[in-house]
Design a protein around this nucleic acid. Sequence first.
DNA 1: ATGGTTGGTAGCCAA
Length: 260
Amino acid sequence: MRVASWNINGVKARIEALVDWLGRAQPDVACLQEIKSVDEGFPAAPIEALGYNVATVGQKGFNGVAILAKRPFEVTERALPGDPDDAQARYIEAVVPGEDGRAVRIGNLYLPNGNPIGTDKFAYKLAWMARLAAHARGLLALEEPVVLAGDYNVIPEPRDAKRPEAWVGDALFQPESRGAFAALAHLGYTDALRAVTDAAGLYTFWDYQAGAFQKDDGIRIDHLMLSPQAADRLVSVRIDRAVRAGDKPSDHVPIIAELA
DNA sequence: ATGGTTGGTAGCCAA
């Protein structure tokens, strides 16, 4: 089963690129973030025409997540548990059947950016990460294959940035952010990319500004975190870097894992 | 150190 995550930065601005990429990459499951659309505005028709089932948790203008899967699936969460007052559309979870009937639980998350540090936005990010850890811990008790996929807005380590020194004052690289991400690994989740390579220079995001992509001035902030039962089935991981060089690209590119 | 770019919405915000 191929599982992908892609912060698409506006699904309506990207629908052509999305259809093109789905046709080439052929993921069984695609988790999208920053769809920037309400549910009714999501352009489902061209995606369904490719054979995908679609579920969205949208909001007007900002945020928003979607799960696309070739097989019909059951949505199990439409928000991250732990704060009923949190109105931001940043989480959707589903159980997706595999070809052999073995299901994989997919949590699709758009973690708060948190900038600037020292504001309520950074506090919201850390509170959101605490809720994520609590939910992730609960999922482990199910002893199922679980993939927590998404834009984590966390640079885990210096080797995950071309210029780590440029990010020291940024919410994405704060010790608290990195520590909360590392805590997921300590719970028992595996960073899929790091399970297959120790290489530096593997990025999923390049800013639109100042020719960042041309300079390869990127960061790795889109991650696939695997429960032990999912990690046992991990075959390969790749970052679809070429998408960033395409027409009207998102500032993020897809990351795709193959599970046996 | 600053400014650079994009999407969605509305007369700027978030990234």
